[in-house]
Amino acid sequence: MSDRLSTLALCWLVERRDGVTLALCDHDRDLVVAGVTYRAAPGMTPSAIVRAEGLDADTMDARGALHAAAISARDLDAGRWDGARVAMSAVDWSDADAVPIALGEGTIGEVEVRDGAFSAELRGVAARLERAVTEATSPECRAELGNRRCRVAMAGRRRFARVVASEELAEGAGGEAMLLLDAAELSAGAYAEGRMRWLGGANGGLESAVLDSDGARVTLRAAPPFAVEAGVLIEVIEGCDKRIATCAGRFNNAVNFRGEPYLPGIDLLTRYPGA
């Protein structure tokens, strides 16, 4: 009967975008593989790995029970696991010196939570080929403020502050929210179209998009997933509306503008009366 016993265990190494790393295996006890301790999660069940011969993306699904100490419904709903890197391998748990066999790696795509369990789609590296090869022209800049294409120095354009008060401006999920900070922005509207990083509290590790700002008041495009506590530490990062006038006048960076503001578009004939 011993020849019918499977001694292979599947291991998942998951690294979130905020640096949190989780190691799980489908064995009934913890395993130490290459110096990493994989916690027992026997409820984790993967589907078959689809490996394409051509240029189609490799995909698979992983399903398992929600566990408050590892993967919780709150964190999944908040998007903490979105885009996390996943490396999957198999190892012979009966041999302490066994070398793990790599099965594939990718990122977490769509996540579904239902009846106390979750299902996550894992997309292989070939999925990157689905991205556009060339950029479409646009009057607005296609670079992000401060990246290597923009080249604006972000020193002095990031600021730490604490939340004094918060208010949801629209009821329901996805509604805007307003925060009152203990420090005002350096110039009017500096944080508009920027980002806010939560450094503490229930939202720690998440980011929020900033819609507008006025002094010490910051309006978020969507309320954060969890309640905001007074005094929580945040980092506010200056934003840009991606217009050539802003790039030239506010940042003196028109030479690196990644858009075509003067290129005629399909609305050329409708710009002037009588055209």
Rank of each mutant, 00 (worst) to 15 (best):
D26Y: 01
L179N: 06
T45P: 04
P273H: 01
A136E: 08
A183F: 00
R128Y: 15
V91F: 09
C11D: 02
A126I: 00
N147G: 07
G274A: 08
V218S: 12
A161W: 02
G215K: 06
F160D: 06
D267A: 09
N147Y: 07
R51G: 14
G79R: 12
P224H: 01
M88V: 05
L13R: 00
H27A: 05
R123F: 11
A41M: 14
D95T: 11
G215Q: 02
A245F: 13
T59W: 15
W12T: 01
V32E: 14
L129C: 12
A23K: 06
L169R: 07
L10K: 13
G200F: 11
L31A: 08
Y38Q: 14
I266A: 07
A9R: 03
S2E: 11
D75R: 13
N147L: 03
A132T: 09
G265R: 05
G274E: 09
G43I: 05
G79F: 10
T246L: 10
A96K: 12
V20E: 15
L206N: 14
L103S: 05
A96W: 07
A78R: 04
Y38F: 15
V255T: 06
C11E: 02
A52D: 12
L76R: 13
V36D: 01
P264A: 09
F226T: 05
W12H: 00
V236R: 00
A69R: 13
S119F: 09
D267Q: 07
A161D: 09
E105F: 10
E112V: 15
V14H: 04
G156N: 04
E260Y: 06
S47L: 13
L24Y: 14
A161E: 05
I49D: 06
R195F: 14
M154R: 09
R74T: 10
V86D: 00
A40N: 08
P261I: 12
L180M: 08
E110G: 01
L179E: 06
L180T: 12
E105I: 04
D77L: 11
A245G: 15
V232H: 01
I101E: 03
D30I: 06
M154N: 02
G200E: 15
N253T: 05
R157A: 07
T21D: 11
A34L: 09
E15K: 08
G43V: 08
T45D: 15
A161Y: 05
A190H: 12
V86C: 01
G35A: 10
R162H: 00
T246Y: 13
T59P: 07
D97W: 11
A202R: 11
E176K: 02
V152A: 10
A34Y: 04
R217F: 14
G79W: 13
A248T: 13
S2F: 10
C240Y: 07
C141E: 05
D26T: 07
A90M: 09
T45S: 13
D214L: 11
G274D: 11
V228M: 05
S166R: 04
L145H: 08
D115G: 01
V99M: 14
R243K: 06
E207L: 03
I266N: 06
G174W: 00
